[in-house]
Simulated scan of single mutants.
Amino acid sequence: MEIAYWITAALLAAFYLYAGGMKVARSQEQLQPMMGWVDTVPMPLVRTIGTLELLGAAGLILPPLTGIAPWLAVAAAIGLALIQVGGIAVHLSRGEARLIGLNIALLVAAVATAWLGIAII
């Protein structure tokens, strides 16, 4: 179970470090081609989502690695799952149901990571 946790957590953390870093560092014009929804959401909210993704990535790895408050990894996974629920809602509200596949995959991975995290605490 512990190996499964580390695999899913590492993959999620890598994805969210990349995606969150882009949301924090890039302009709206740079994000627009790959994230069409940024034109309807205020940039401070995009930056907040990016920051939460970066914190979630750190939360998946650092607490279990250091042994300090490992329950935070479960909280991080749940938080990342909630971000994906919001992403699915945004896509559906924009009539982009065909674009929710990645959101669903990330949601499932985050829920699995939370479950694995609970099992190893």
Rank of each mutant, 00 (worst) to 15 (best):
Y5I: 09
V38N: 01
R94T: 01
A81T: 06
G21P: 02
Q28P: 02
L72H: 04
M35K: 02
Y18T: 08
E2R: 11
T48H: 01
I7Q: 13
P64L: 06
W37K: 09
A73F: 05
I118M: 12
V38D: 04
L72S: 05
E53H: 02
T48L: 15
S93Y: 03
G21A: 12
R47D: 01
A75R: 02
G79A: 06
L72D: 10
G87E: 04
M1P: 11
M34P: 00
P64M: 10
A109F: 10
A81F: 07
A105Y: 01
I7D: 13
G95V: 06
P64A: 13
F15M: 11
L60M: 09
R94I: 01
W37C: 03
L45Y: 07
A14N: 12
V111R: 09
V90A: 11
M43P: 00
E2H: 09
I100E: 00
T48G: 00
A57Q: 11
V74Q: 06
A13F: 07
I121L: 15
S27T: 15
Y5D: 14
A58N: 05
L99K: 15
P64W: 06
A73Y: 05
L82A: 05
L60N: 05
A81E: 04
T51W: 03
F15R: 05
A73R: 08
